[in-house]
């Protein structure tokens, strides 16, 4: 059995999660600190969670296509996105980012402001406050964000199909492989991949449930 969809899926989801991790924390921090336009920034980042993934895929196609501004710049360096693995990663990042951002932001906002104010009165720099106080105190939220984003990236279908295509060994993920198998009436393959997919999803949902238990033994 061809295992390339599993490899492509893992490769895409892991790479996307690493990018989402940094980007999500950065955006959460930036939005929490914002004074103006907080609501607008929040809505824009959360949008991919609400929009149907095919719509997200269509937007990405228009944003990164060869006719677009971004696409034209990259074309100068002979870099294209549509139907490439890069497109699969971008799709996964965009759809999983809201989850990372939301959970991290929630964790940031639950930190006692007094601790941060106290640090400021002691003359601790903002950078140090971020690294030594905010991040460590938000670690459970961040970890939950990572797990959720990774799980979402694993199952991504709509945007990937539209933007990255369904090319075996390159952009064909578990989700698109299942789609192709069903289209080809190859239900055995579809069931196998569905099984793999379910094991992965269950593992990650279990992992998120496990988190609060580590935090406190019981009420």
């Amino acid at each position: 059995m061809e295992i390339s969809p599993l490899i492509v899926t893992l490769k895409t989801a892991v790479t996307a999660t690493v990018i989402t991790f940094f980007l999500g924390i950065f955006l959460a921090y930036a939005v929490v600190k914002m004074k103006k336009f907080k609501g607008i920034a929040d809505a824009v980042i959360t949008l991919p969670l609400i929009l149907p993934p095919t719509v997200v895929g269509f937007f990405l196609l228009l944003l990164f296509g060869k006719k677009s501004f971004i696409g034209k710049i990259f074309l100068q360096f002979d870099v294209t996105f549509v139907f490439t693995w890069k497109a699969a990663v971008i799709s996964a990042v965009i759809v999983s980012l809201p989850l990372m951002y939301r959970t991290t932001r929630g964790a940031f906002e639950q930190i006692d402001v007094n601790i941060i104010q106290a640090a400021r009165t002691l003359g601790v720099s903002e950078g140090k406050i971020f690294w030594r106080i905010i991040l460590p105190n938000a670690r459970y939220g961040i970890l939950a964000g990572i797990i959720l984003s990774f799980a979402r990236a694993l199952g991504e279908f709509g945007a990937t199909m539209m933007f990255a295509g369904n090319i075996p060994g390159v952009t064909q993920t578990l989700s698109t492989a299942i789609y192709s198998a069903v289209q080809a009436n190859d239900y055995d393959t579809a069931f196998q991949w569905t099984g793999v997919m379910m094991i992965f999803s269950l593992t990650f949902i279990l992992a998120t449930n496990f988190l609060p238990n580590m935090r406190r033994s019981s009420f």
Partner: peptide
Amino acid sequence: GALQQAIENGGET
């Protein structure tokens, strides 16, 4: 439809 959109936006095939 999706393939056509992708090809028009630079999908190589």
